[in-house]
């Protein structure tokens, strides 16, 4: 069985710093790690590999730094890591990203029986690429997968969690499965894995070698464009009660809550 994991690199931080002038994120000095939600997808792949045997490819499009993240993924026992990187890819929206990824799969003849990805990336938070990728390759897609029950050559049985229900789906392979956190807890890399990964190569392709035209990729190939960014100045006029005044504050809150008192 061949498994393709789509992964995105995100900055390794929980404290986002914003450039006050441009409104963009300051990424300088931040390491690239795999999107935490994609790690859960990778874990599913690794477990399938452990139980039934599988060949795992991780595919990512991103800046050159993404190589670090792919190196890390090799330490887990990933068999093949492919990076699509080019300045011309920069500024891609979800459509352009899905287009490049799906075309790369076709053009590089990457084989797959199952495609796995995380529900969304922790930075962009759109959760669209996996789905658009699947449609472009005409694959069945199941989103919000919270459990894997069974995998065989022909199908996969999964649990999908929605607002109202837990659904059990039997899906024909090849298919795209996008997973929630709860699907499987990612493992930690081992020393031996890390050492092995040091000698493994990552395949790197640019726009030219993949045969993309400049107008169909990156900012040019993206139908959506950010026209304005503003800092979330949600600042309300907070009436602050400090020290001796806290009792006054408490009284105010009590007044506000009074109408809601259970009779």
């Amino acid at each position: 069985m061949k498994i393709l994991v789509l992964a995105k690199q995100v900055p390794d931080t929980d404290k986002v710093k914003i450039d006050p002038n441009t409104g963009t994120m300051i990424r300088e000095g931040l390491d690239a790690v795999m999107n935490p939600l994609d790690m859960h997808a990778l874990e599913v792949a690794l477990r399938i590999k452990e139980t039934t045997g599988a060949h795992i490819t991780v595919l990512s499009m991103g800046p050159a730094k993404t190589e670090e993240m792919l190196k890390d993924s090799l330490a887990f026992g990933v068999d093949r890591a492919i990076l699509l990187t080019d300045a011309a890819f920069a500024g891609s929206d979800t459509w352009a990203t899905s287009y490049v990824l799906s075309e790369a799969v076709k053009r590089l003849k990457i084989e797959y029986d199952l495609v796995l990805c995380g529900e969304k990336a922790t930075d962009g938070e759109t959760g669209q690429v996996g789905i658009e990728f699947g449609v472009l390759l005409n694959l069945p897609i199941v989103t919000y997968v919270s459990r894997i029950f069974e995998v065989s050559k022909e199908f996969i049985v999964v649990e999908r969690t929605t607002e109202e229900a837990f659904e059990k789906w039997k899906v024909k392979l090849p298919a795209v499965i996008s997973v929630l956190k709860s699907v499987a807890e990612p493992r930690l890399p081992t020393l031996n894995g890390k050492k092995r990964a040091m000698n493994q190569k990552i395949e790197i392709y640019n726009a030219q070698t993949l045969g993309f035209k400049p107008e169909e990729i990156g900012l040019n190939g993206s139908p959506t464009k950010v026209i304005r960014v503003c800092n979330t100045k949600l600042t309300r006029n907070c009436k602050l009660f400090v020290g001796k005044e806290t009792t006054v504050g408490v009284r105010k809150v009590v007044e506000l809550l009074k109408p809601f008192l259970r009779k």
Binding site: I18, G23, R228, V229, C230, T232
Partner: peptide, 9 residues
Amino acid sequence: IGGNVMATI
């Protein structure tokens, strides 16, 4: 960016 900014698209 984690709710830090509002982007208009």
